[in-house]
């Protein structure tokens, strides 16, 4: 199973894990979940669509990251996906 992790639990950051999956699943935990969960999910979906990735599970643990950070951490986690990390 391929897995990639990027980011941190620091303020304004997010820890994102991407796991090979048989369908698209997105889990979001955020300190601003009530206000921004939909926005975070939109950023994740848009980024995955641009890469034509639809068979992954994305777990996002957000500590108040802006959109660019969510996107960057997701891209890094995807780039880090490899069997070695399984």
């Amino acid at each position: 199973m391929k897995i990639g992790i990027a980011g941190s639990f620091d303020s304004c950051d997010a820890l994102i894990t991407v796991i090979e999956n048989d369908k698209l699943e997105i889990e979001i935990e955020s300190i601003v979940e009530n206000q921004f969960k939909d926005e975070i999910e939109k950023v994740i979906r848009t980024t995955l669509q641009a890469l034509d990735l639809n068979k992954v599970k994305v777990i996002c643990k957000d500590k108040g990251a802006l959109n660019y950070t969510i996107r960057a951490r997701l891209l890094s986690a995807i780039a880090r996906m490899s069997d070695d990390n399984a």
């Binding site: 990027a6 960057a72 890094s76």
Partner: peptide
Amino acid sequence: KDSARILLSQFLISF
């Protein structure tokens, strides 16, 4: 190093 590069790139694209 890899994630810092991506983070900075995305930051500069966004702001």
